[in-house]
Amino acid sequence: MTDLQPPPPEETTARPRRRWVRVVLVLSLAANLAVAGLVLGAWITHDGKRGPDGPRGERDRIVRELGFGPYSRAIPREGREGMKAAIEPHRGALRANRDALRGAFEATLTTLRSAPFDRAAMAAQMAAQRDAIAANQKIGHEILLDRLEAMTPEQRTAFADRLERGLGREPGRKKKGD
């Protein structure tokens, strides 16, 4: 019969208190890990760099806007600095193309929300977007070709190596099946 007696009152109150302390400790640890993760993530992604060798900012935006794709990542930092001077004479055309692209997208949003769907209007807006992007790419490609032509063979080889790394391949190694 002694087994059926309730435990003394001290033991009953101690057990919930321990559980509450554990819950608080686990929540505190989770919050600390979350804050540490946020700080670490911000430090890694917002350290003032875009890619392995370039600052964020106007120069990189302009280079990206020209539609270089992987080529823009292969341009070394000092080369990006020089791109601004090469782009300057084309600034008006680039701005006009950007404005045309923005206008085409605004029209696209209206077309997408209208009923019934106007396929011809959408096709015209997509063509306007394509034309604006192609015009920027043409300017960018001419500038890039001028820069590549002015490089020494060693500089072009280094550019090719950076481009190859940007494409996810080890410089100088052929892809499987090549």
Rank of each mutant, 00 (worst) to 15 (best):
A100K: 12
D118G: 00
P76C: 03
D146N: 15
D53E: 05
L112Q: 06
I87A: 03
R102P: 00
G57R: 01
D131R: 12
R56W: 04
I143P: 02
G57S: 03
L101K: 10
G79M: 06
G48W: 08
D47R: 04
G140P: 01
E65Y: 11
A115F: 04
S114H: 07
H46S: 03
R98P: 00
S72R: 10
E58P: 02
V63W: 11
A42E: 11
G103L: 15
L145A: 11
A124W: 07
M126H: 12
R102K: 15
L94P: 00
G67S: 09
L109Y: 10
G103C: 05
A42W: 13
G82T: 13
Q137D: 08
P70K: 05
A120F: 01
D99E: 14
G92I: 12
R61K: 10
E154A: 14
R119V: 07
P116E: 00
S72I: 02
R95K: 14
E142V: 15
R113E: 14
I139Q: 01
G69C: 02
A120M: 03
R147H: 03
R102D: 11
G51S: 06
L112H: 05
R91A: 10
A74L: 10
A85S: 09
Q137G: 10
L66C: 10
A120L: 04
M122Y: 04
G82V: 12
P70N: 09
G57A: 00
F105P: 00
H141T: 15
L66G: 00
E149D: 14
I75N: 11
G69A: 06
L144T: 08
G41P: 02
P52H: 10
G92V: 14
A85H: 08
S72H: 04
K49H: 14
L109I: 09
L112F: 01
A93V: 14
A104Q: 02
L66T: 14
L66V: 07
G57C: 00
E106R: 09
P153Y: 06
L94M: 11
Q129F: 01
A86N: 13
E58Q: 09
T45V: 12
A93Q: 15
F117N: 00
N97Y: 14
